[in-house]
Design a protein around this nucleic acid. Structure first.
Length: 110
DNA sequence: AGTCTGACGGTAT
DNA sequence: AATACCGCCAGAC
């Protein structure tokens, strides 16, 4: 098993596996990685991404409320813009229907 | 070296 | 049902 040293790497890989037009939550990622409550660490890992690493769709990662908690790390509403560009309807309050767009990261663990 | 915060989540009150 | 507090790991001050 990967050492927790690769924790960031795992988060990046998982996020890159998020299908277009789909979103996931920090908790789901943390859980998929085997952590119980490393949701904060997931966000921390994504903190080193930002749009500089646009190859990593960090904008597809939202909190369990379906709110774009990390939109502040993007320039203005670039996060919302991208999601809408992928077909994800984002509410005026930077929220979306998790039930509709939620993607389970454990799904690829098959 | 110690303390606090941080792109969260769950449990307790 | 809503709000508050605690827990997780790592980094920054």
């Amino acid at each position: 098993m990967r050492d927790k040293n690769s924790y960031y790497q795992r988060v990046y890989e998982l996020v890159q596996k998020i299908p277009t037009g789909r979103v996931t939550t920090y908790g789901a990622i943390a859980k998929a990685l085997g952590l119980k409550s490393g949701a904060r660490m997931v966000g921390w890992a994504l903190n080193g991404i930002t749009e500089s690493d646009q190859q990593i769709p960090a904008h597809r990662v939202v909190n369990r409320l379906g709110c774009l908690s990390g939109r502040h790390a993007f320039q203005g509403d670039s996060m919302k813009e991208r999601l809408e560009s992928e077909g994800v309807l984002v509410d005026s309050d930077y929220k979306l229907e998790l039930e509709t767009y939620f993607w389970n990261p454990e799904e690829i663990t098959i």
